[in-house]
């Protein structure tokens, strides 16, 4: 099996200097790995640090100690110590991230948000258009909304746009933060399908799944958080 992510002795703590120097220990001595085509689910009660871990894998948060080794260009790179440029490259070509909330530039249309994600990586206009169409259709975003900016969309619609954008590029590693949180059953199933397809194509997935059904459907392995 090919190792895609390897977490070694990872430790994260926040120090809030402006709130009397309060220290929040989130997790320590975390070890796990994710292989090609595997889906690992992070599991634990609210506040157990699932999102913090996911963000640490994406180098959005800076762990205090330990390593997060990511396979990038067939080389294991500790993203916690990588230069900002290398992190940008890893995020562009190797590791995608679907957050809980859609964060986009105002004014950009839904279709462009999805297509540009594809275009920026592959530089292929017609491929980008095809992929954006496919995803938006599968995720049941009505075509009349495609030309609109998603700022005024409902929570569920925004999340589906976000998912479409995340899946527009076929990353070797994909991080999902509660992708199905505000979706109805039919759309949840679409997301499950998308994850299964990605796994078949070899993508290593790490996710937080609120929904037990979804988690059981997609995950090969569970990392339990906040057990201590």
């Amino acid at each position: 099996m090919i190792k895609m992510i390897e977490v070694l002795g990872l430790e994260k703590r926040f120090i809030l200097h402006n709130q009397g120097g309060a220290v929040i220990d989130v997790f320590e001595k975390l070890n796990f790995k994710v292989e090609k085509g595997q889906c690992v689910a992070l599991f634990g009660r609210s506040g157990s640090g699932k999102s913090t871990l996911l963000r640490s894998l994406y180098a959005n948060y800076k762990p205090v100690s330990g390593a997060v080794n990511i396979r990038h260009d067939n080389e294991m790179i500790d993203i916690t110590r990588a230069t900002p440029r290398l992190v940008v490259e890893i995020r562009k070509h190797t590791m995608g991230y679907v957050s809980q909330f859609l964060r986009v530039i105002p004014r950009v249309s839904t279709f462009d948000i999805v297509a540009s994600a594809h275009r920026e990586v592959y530089g292929d206009e017609s491929g980008a258009t095809l992929r954006a169409k496919e995803l938006l259709e599968r995720l049941n975003i009505p075509q009349r909304l495609w030309s609109l900016a998603p700022a005024t969309f409902s929570g569920g619609e925004q999340q589906r746009v976000n998912i479409a954008r995340g899946f527009a590029v076929k990353y070797p590693i994909l991080l999902l933060d509660e992708p199905t949180a505000s979706l109805d059953a039919a759309n949840r199933m679409v997301v499950v399908e998308l994850i299964e397809e990605a796994k078949k194509e070899g993508t290593a997935v790490v996710g937080i799944f609120h929904d037990d059904e979804v988690r059981e459907a997609v995950s090969n392995k569970i990392v339990e958080m906040g057990a201590a």
Binding site: N60, P84, V87, V88
Partner: peptide
């Protein structure tokens, strides 16, 4: 990184 500095 921008998001790292602003988020953490």
């Amino acid at each position: 990184l921008t998001d790292q500095v602003l988020d953490d």
